[in-house]
């Protein structure tokens, strides 16, 4: 039987969810028998591949490049999973949405007010979106795994359920924050 093609993606987040993914420790070895990791920050693959079965996405959508990528992910993925609070609801990444002129204020704060050298906002990088988005504000999401980060056990549970073709039951299992 062909292995399940799994991808993990890191958008605007702290990578904590990926750390938690790695914290599955020896269970990763069990998973390895069933999956093929086709795209991930921990695997050196440049372009998001086609025909992906499951993609775990960490982080909110913060800039135009990420939005593009997410749309491609959606197109190429059967099951899209929002991994962690940033992907689920914006979390810390989206705190900037509370500022009135979100983008300008954030950039000014980071690159002008708090900078000691070269006080100007970067221009040769992807433009920030007006608001940081939770994944489901941009594309259809199939499953959600909240947590900051979600525990390794929870990630493992969800992956196993999906591999078994079942719908993970989240009630009582997760915790925001």
């Amino acid at each position: 039987m062909a292995k399940v093609r799994l991808a993990t993606v890191w958008l605007s987040g702290c990578s904590g969810c990926h750390m938690s993914f790695l914290d599955q420790d020896e269970k990763l070895l069990e998973l390895a028998g069933e999956i093929e990791l086709v795209y991930s920050p921990i695997a050196d693959v440049k372009n998001f591949p086609e025909n992906v079965d499951i993609t775990l996405v960490e982080g909110a959508v913060g800039n135009e490049e990420q939005l593009e990528l997410l749309k491609r992910i959606r197109k190429n993925t059967k099951i899209l999973v929002a991994l962690g609070d940033c992907a689920v609801n914006g979390n810390v990444t989206a705190l900037r949405n509370s500022l009135n002129n979100s983008v300008e204020e954030v950039l000014k704060k980071a690159y002008v007010e708090n900078a000691t050298l070269k006080q100007n906002t970067p221009t040769h990088v992807p433009r920030l979106l007006k608001k940081a988005l939770a994944l489901n504000e941009a594309v259809k999401v199939d499953f959600y795994v909240p947590g900051c980060p979600p525990s390794a056990n929870l990630i493992n549970y969800v992956l196993n359920e999906l591999l078994e073709g079942r719908t993970p039951a989240l009630e009582g299992r997760f915790k925001y924050g």
Partner: peptide, 19 residues
């Protein structure tokens, strides 16, 4: 937070308001 866990509110179907 506890009730969200308990009732399985694992995501939001409506946009959040960032007051």
């Amino acid at each position: 937070q506890q009730l969200a866990t308990e009732l399985g509110v694992d995501h939001l179907r409506v946009d959040r308001k960032w007051t």
